[in-house]
Nucleic acid binder design. Structure first.
Lengths: 111, 111
DNA sequence: TTGACATGTGACTAATTAGTCACCTATCAT
DNA sequence: ATGATAGGTGACTAATTAGTCACATGTCAA
């Protein structure tokens, strides 16, 4: 039981704690397979900073990569996100919580 | 669109980044309505430390509280967790991702 | 081959955050 | 009332983390 709550998931949560890294995930959610240079584009940060953040995301398993020649392509892996969900939302209450979350999103969207 | 990605969600992710706070959420997931003294029990930390962590969780909306006499009862609010989920997992891929997550949990459970 | 481009590494500094301390306030039971 | 119990505050120190730098490696296209 403690096994699945160890170092792995700590890396995931630490990775998600930074707004730049969440923004990178947003970009990859929008469209997968981007390169470092592509992702560097809209960030007010040096390339090295972005690379460091991508490394953290990759170590956490939130991003998986594939080399293609001199480019490195980045893909979003949503499984760790789902595991966070399952840790504190059981199958029985999932429907109600999901409905509440949808409601909240809709209310904020129209505001 | 930026509205729902603002300071609020930053507080949520920062709150989740600490293992002690995740443990507190685990305890509340197991059983709701605990007091500070109750939660303090199995932690190697002073009461003040625990109180500080609970405060962070409450500010993030992950924990809601209710006063009952001289006691303060703590409840887990799963909605922010679900919003994290919905940010990077769309409704169309949710089933597949969920299945993968279940598989991963089962494999680790039997290991 | 050679110049240009994409990515990678180790060390340094500045800023953030965790945990503790002494001390304070409010409520309950007798 | 009063002693015990539950919870709360502001300031301090130690540890962690973000961002940058100069420099290095590997790949493509002509």
């Amino acid at each position: 039981m403690q096994g699945m709550l160890g170092d792995d998931d700590d890396r995931v949560f630490k990775a998600l704690a930074d707004p730049t890294r969440r923004h990178l995930l947003d970009r990859l959610f929008e469209r997968d397979g981007r390169t470092l240079t592509d992702l560097e584009g809209d960030l007010e940060m040096t390339r090295f900073g972005v690379m460091k953040h991508l490394r953290v995301l990759e170590d956490a398993g939130l991003v998986v990569t594939r080399r293609s020649g001199r480019e490195k392509l980045h893909f979003l892996n949503p499984v760790p996100i789902r595991l966070i969900h399952d840790r504190w939302i059981d199958k029985y209450t999932e429907r109600q919580v999901s409905a509440l979350a949808d409601l909240k999103t809709r209310l904020e969207g129209s505001a």
